[in-house]
């Protein structure tokens, strides 16, 4: 069960897991797409089902922001994290002939003026990440130019309509290879195997990480033995060859799949980060 439309990155994550999962559990799986309200409808759907572990929700940061903005939805405390499915770290990109030649130029420009960042809609996941990055780097409040998705952001970056953007490596793969965009840093704990020369934000003294993460949750009240069984089975299903190939081919971290402890901690920390950002941006009532 996912909030994404059929065929999007999130939907495909679920379908790739399902290649192996039926064998793992001896059960058929079906995908339910409930797309309305940035995850709101998906959360309501989950809450309408019995807490028996038969309905799994693929949770992303989008759900957390929807919870923050609409308190009547099921909240974090109503969910039990089960396992993380993907972690896709973000790069700070500029176009080839940008005057922001390296991290130093970016830092001084960001402090001198408000940089134009490309991202998804105001109050969305990208906005929160840009806010957190800008604050950790000591920037002036960045200007968000909102677009419909990663592809549009990359095109406008190359076209010179925005100064910089936080983008997943896969979204800019072709432009990275042809050198039309240059990565200044990666906002993860470790350098990426595919881009070993690109420093992390932390190495440059910017204490901020940003990644697109997705993982499974069930409803509160699901019996403990079922959660444990699900955690085990999902992780095994996601260690299959097809799923590993999918992660590698889409440039996502090979450490993506992890159990409920790490996944739960990450959800909690993002929830807090989102709350701070939305409050500071005046988007939370």
């Amino acid at each position: 069960m996912t909030h994404a439309g059929v065929g999007g990155g999130t939907d495909i994550t679920v379908r790739m897991m399902m290649v192996q999962a039926p064998a793992e559990f001896g059960q058929e799986f079906t995908v339910v797409n409930r797309t309305a309200g940035s995850g709101a409808q998906a959360l309501q759907y989950l809450a309408s089902k019995p807490a028996d572990g038969h309905t799994l929700l693929l949770v992303t940061q989008t759900h957390l922001l929807s919870m923050l903005r609409n308190r009547s939805l099921p909240q974090m405390s109503d969910l039990i994290p089960v396992a993380r499915a993907t972690e896709d770290p973000m790069l700070v990109l500029v176009r080839r002939d940008s005057p922001l030649r390296g991290p130093d130029e970016l830092m001084s420009a960001g402090r001198a003026r408000s940089l134009r960042f490309g991202g998804t809609h105001v109050g969305g996941v990208d906005h929160v990440a840009i806010f957190a990055f800008g604050r950790a780097a000591g920037f002036q409040q960045p200007t968000l130019v909102p677009f419909r998705g990663g592809g549009e952001i990359v095109i406008n970056l190359v076209g010179g309509n925005i100064d910089t953007a936080l983008v997943n490596p896969a979204e800019a793969e072709a432009q990275l290879r042809s050198g039309e965009v240059r990565p200044l840093m990666v906002l993860s704990e470790r350098r990426l195997p595919s881009l070993p020369d690109v420093p992390t934000g932390k190495e440059l003294g910017i204490n901020s990480t940003a990644a697109t993460v997705r993982g499974y949750c069930v409803l509160k009240g699901t019996p403990e033995d079922r959660v444990a069984r699900l955690e085990q089975g999902l992780i095994r299903a996601m260690e299959s060859g097809v799923y590993k190939d999918y992660l590698r081919n889409t440039g996502q971290s090979p450490d993506s799949v992890t159990g409920r402890q790490a996944w739960g901690a990450q959800l909690t920390s993002f929830f807090e980060e989102g709350r701070e950002a939305l409050t500071a941006l005046g988007l939370l009532r």
């Binding site: 495909i12 896969a170 793969e173 072709a174 290879r177 042809s178 190939d245 999918y246 081919n249 889409t250």
Partner: peptide, 10 residues
């Protein structure tokens, strides 16, 4: 992409 084909100018 799942098939390992990377679209782009190359």
């Amino acid at each position: 992409i799942v098939q390992g084909v990377r679209p782009g100018p190359h």
